[in-house]
């Protein structure tokens, strides 16, 4: 009799070991250091020491409320926009894609073969003051004669929406793909109009995808700093820009850590409320 055979109850833990180890090394330990750093005081020249410096939080929150709220706002708008764009897209691919499904999915992911930075820089060209988009909007009078798209809130939100779109589209597709079409047919047989069948059957069944997609979009979007830096102005600075500047320019690690933790807690809070609102029991299959 082998050891594993005698201790069969160990198997699940054995299978979990790699994942748990990963989590411990790359999440728990860094989190510990982040939390510890956020309570340090001192300066970069002479080093930082742990002093339970809760003041870092008060200072960070007091001073950067604006950027924090703006980040959550931009991330929220971008998530909503990505949802509104992705849902019809995913729906169409799942139900009407036919044998082109895989090609269409590949097209959704295709931009990701190019690095994040380059994709964002490309938007500088697309939204350029003398570019085609701005030119068109000026012609139809939406944009004033000296109006611009680049270096505005619109550009930042658009950039975030674009950059995280596949994170929304793919989970939605995965959910919609699995919807049993016979259920939709049954609803229609029972005299549900097509919109009603959609809202009573298809949409509820795709909720796990909606939940996953919004999370995967909102969370990284709230911490993003590239879009605000390249497509925005100082008036569009997000909390990610502040953290980057405190960390790399001012070498103020404690406050940068405090801000990171505040952002994380804010996101966790929002996710909890959101999950409650959406109804976790409806998310289970």
């Amino acid at each position: 009799m082998g050891f594993l055979h005698r201790h069969r109850w160990l198997t699940p833990y054995g299978l979990l070991a790699a994942g748990l180890g990963w989590l411990a090394v790359f999440f728990v330990v860094p989190m510990y250091y982040l939390a510890a750093t956020s309570l340090k005081s001192g300066d970069i020249d002479f080093g930082y020491a742990f002093t339970w410096a809760w003041g870092n939080y008060a200072h960070a929150l007091g001073r950067y409320q604006e950027q924090l709220l703006r980040s959550l706002e931009y991330a929220g708008i971008a998530t909503l926009a990505a949802f509104l764009i992705s849902y019809p897209l995913a729906y169409w691919i799942a139900f009407r894609g036919g044998r082109w499904k895989n090609v269409l999915l590949l097209l959704v992911i295709a931009p990701f073969f190019v690095t994040y930075l380059i994709r964002t820089l490309a938007w500088q060209t697309i939204l350029a003051d003398d570019g085609p988009v701005a030119g068109f909007l000026r012609t139809i009078g939406v944009l004033g004669a000296d109006g611009r798209l680049l270096a505005t809130s619109f550009a930042v939100v658009a950039g975030i929406t674009y950059n995280f779109l596949p994170f929304m589209a793919l989970p939605l597709y995965a959910s919609l793909e699995q919807v049993d079409k016979r259920l939709v047919e049954a609803a229609e047989d029972l005299y549900a109009s097509r919109p009603v069948a959609f809202f009573k059957v298809t949409f509820p069944l795709s909720l796990p995808g909606v939940f996953a997609g919004t999370m995967l979009t909102f969370i990284p979007a709230a911490g993003d700093f590239i879009n605000a830096q390249l497509l925005g102005t100082p008036q569009q600075a997000m909390i990610g820009n502040v953290i980057q500047s405190r960390f790399l320019v001012l070498n103020d690690y404690p406050e940068a850590s405090a801000l990171s933790l505040v952002l994380m807690l804010a996101i966790v809070g929002i996710v909890v409320v959101y999950a409650r609102a959406l109804g976790t029991e409806r998310l289970g299959t």
Binding site: Q67, T233, P234, Q235, Q236, A237, N241, V242, Q244, S245, R246, V249, L250
Partner: peptide, 11 residues
């Protein structure tokens, strides 16, 4: 001075 300038830059 650095803090003042960073505040100007928006971060």
């Amino acid at each position: 001075y650095k803090e003042l300038f960073q505040a100007l830059v928006g971060a």
